[in-house]
Each structure stands twice: as structure tokens, then as C-alpha cells.
Design a protein around this nucleic acid. Structure first.
Lengths: 170, 170
DNA sequence: CGAAATACGTCAGCCTTGTTGACATGACTG
DNA sequence: CAGTCATGTCAACAAGGCTGACGTATTTCG
């Protein structure tokens, strides 16, 4: 690497050493493990995986969303998503209803049972996030969000922004 | 849950609404995708996966580390790690040498080829991190690290702290 | 010394979750 | 009506987790 030593201006050169960057990388690695640990425990008991969690989360997030929409949010193939969706529907956690305007589409909703599982998953995850936010304080949280957003790919960030700016209507 | 919503008191409480927490959760989700995207592209060309990346990263990080040590850092089973390690050794990216003090142990090092791959992977990841850090600024970066550290499990945080505080000697 | 514990490797089998490719159906659209 | 679109599904495969069971050095401890 060894770039910043020669590079001009910028706001602060010293805080962008490879060592600082490596610490950020390792922090992401370990923090993500913590981030998924609580839901993973709950899901394991019910024989579901992270893929089910993601589907449930975004169906809860955007009730009535279509399969195609979910596909583009999750960034997986339809075969992969369908496998997960099939089990969730079979288990009565998700309902799939034919679209009124366009009858090719299926609109996805959580059933009461699905909503209950979503609740318990997101409670666990929120609890950890809340504790982290409390420990770090509001200023740190703002910085946290800024860096994370800057880390996304452009098209991902667009999806994220669009999603984040609409309240969840719980 | 529904805790902070009942008493909409001060500003310090409002920043911990479920909605704020959800935004943080979704930011983690999308940011982690970005975080792994660049290395994933490089690895895919060489028919390696994220598991190889993690092994390479931490062997680079702690040259001469033992298999058991790596196991506890990565948090996987020895069978799982061994599969990855076997291919890396067979492909000449990692060397395994019998321990001098304790001949049961194997000490792992990157070969020159392994170090080259590590370099190209971490260059890509650091480049993204650098861009995010630049965009967000030093104060945001400090907050970012604070929140991530608060998000880890206690024993994970201990490992992280111990690791982060020793320079990597590159 | 001998028994137990430790570090490592490996075989076999299973699961989840991702992939491609192919194909069918029903529904909208020009 | 022809073409495209949204969806579902079958089959086959790969990565990378897991458990359980063994085998083999080697070290440690009673």
C-alpha cells in the first residue's frame, strides 16, 4: 500500500494508516458475528437459518412486497429464495396472495405466527443494538451510521436509503 | 419490547427508538455486503471462498499461529477449518511446520504466494474502508469503532482487543 | 514408567444456502 | 395473437458449516 505518505491534502492523513484500516476491518468481522449471534440462537431452535430471518425481516418491513422485489433486496436467485419461502409458507409463517392489480404477482405478508417470530428475532437483535448504542452514545451512533453507509455499493445504498426513509408502520 | 416509546421524554431517549435501531440493523446488513464484495470477487476467480479469506487473513495477522489458536479465533470446527487449510497448503499458499517447543503443534505461515494473495485481498478491502473513512471523517470513524466494539460478545471483544493492540509487523 | 490429556488430521455423513439450467403456467401488453 | 413478465419448480451441484468417531504423535502428570 504505502499510499498516503505521498498523497496530497485530504482532511487527516495519519488516521488512515493501514493499521487503522485493519482495525476497522477486524472490528467489522467480530461485530457482525455478535450482530447475528442472538437471532441465530433462536432460529437454530426452530430449525431455520439466517436466510429465513432475512426473508421474514424484509417481509415484515415491507408488507405486501412481491417475490421479485424481495429478490432484488436480498440479492439471491429466485430458486434460493423460493426454497426458503416455500418452507415459511408451508409452516404458516408467511402468506402469499395473488395480486389484485397484476395477478401474476404474489404479495407476501407475515401471518400472526410469522409476526410473532419476527418480533422475537428483532427484539433480540434490537436489544443488542440498543445496548451498543447506549454504551457508545449518540455521537458515536451518528458516526457509525455514516461509515456504514459510505461502505455500501452505490446501488445497495440506494435501496437502503429508499427503505430506511419509510417508517415501518408496526 | 415497546419500552422507550411510552415516555417520549428527552432527546437522549428518542435516539433509541425502535425505528432508529432498525435503521442501524439494516445498515449493518447492507454494509456487510459491501464489506465482503471486493474480496469475494477476487476469491471467486481463484475458486476460493470467504472461509479461505478468513484463514489467510488471520495467518497473516499472527504468523506462526497454531491450528488450535486459529480455530478459536474463527469459531469453527477443526474439520471445517481443516478442509480449507488442506487446500491452502496443497496449493502452496500456506506452510505448516512442526512446533519446536511442542512437536504436536503445527505453526502456520503464508508462503510468498499466500502473502501475495493476502495482499491483493486486503488491498481491495482496505481501499473500500479507506474511501468510507475518508467520506465520513475521523469523528465518525471513532464512533463507528465504538459501536462495533460494543456490539461484540464479551469473549469476542477480548480476542479482538488482544489482537488489535498488537501491530501486524507488515 | 505408564496413563491420561492434548494437538492434529481425517473419514463419513448430514444440513443450509447459494449457484445454473431448463421448463411450465398464467397473466399482462403491444 | 405473439411476446414478455412474474412466479414456481425440478434437478444437479458446490461451499462451508456441523456431529461423531478414530488414529497417531507427543506431552504431561500421577
Amino acid at each position: 500500500m504505502a499510499s498516503d505518505t505521498t498523497a496530497p491534502a485530504g482532511r487527516s492523513l495519519l488516521f488512515l494508516t493501514d493499521d487503522q484500516l485493519r482495525k476497522g476491518i477486524e472490528a467489522m468481522f467480530f461485530a457482525y458475528r455478535g450482530f447475528t449471534a442472538d437471532p441465530d440462537r433462536i432460529l437454530a431452535e426452530k430449525n431455520y437459518g439466517r436466510a429465513h430471518h432475512r426473508a421474514i425481516h424484509f417481509i415484515h418491513r415491507s408488507p405486501g412486497t412481491t417475490v421479485n422485489n424481495l429478490l432484488s433486496i436480498l440479492g439471491v436467485t429466485k430458486q434460493s429464495l423460493n426454497r426458503v419461502l416455500r418452507t415459511l409458507i408451508a409452516d404458516g409463517l408467511v402468506s402469499s396472495t395473488v395480486g389484485a392489480r397484476d395477478r401474476r404477482e404474489r404479495h407476501l405478508h407475515l401471518t400472526p405466527e410469522g409476526a410473532a417470530l419476527e418480533r422475537s428475532l428483532s427484539d433480540a437483535q434490537r436489544e443488542r443494538m440498543r445496548a451498543a448504542y447506549r454504551a457508545a452514545g449518540p455521537a458515536a451512533v451518528a458516526g457509525f451510521r455514516e461509515v456504514l453507509e459510505a461502505m455500501m455499493d452505490d446501488d445497495m445504498r440506494r435501496q437502503y436509503q429508499a427503505m430506511v426513509d419509510q417508517p415501518d408502520g408496526r
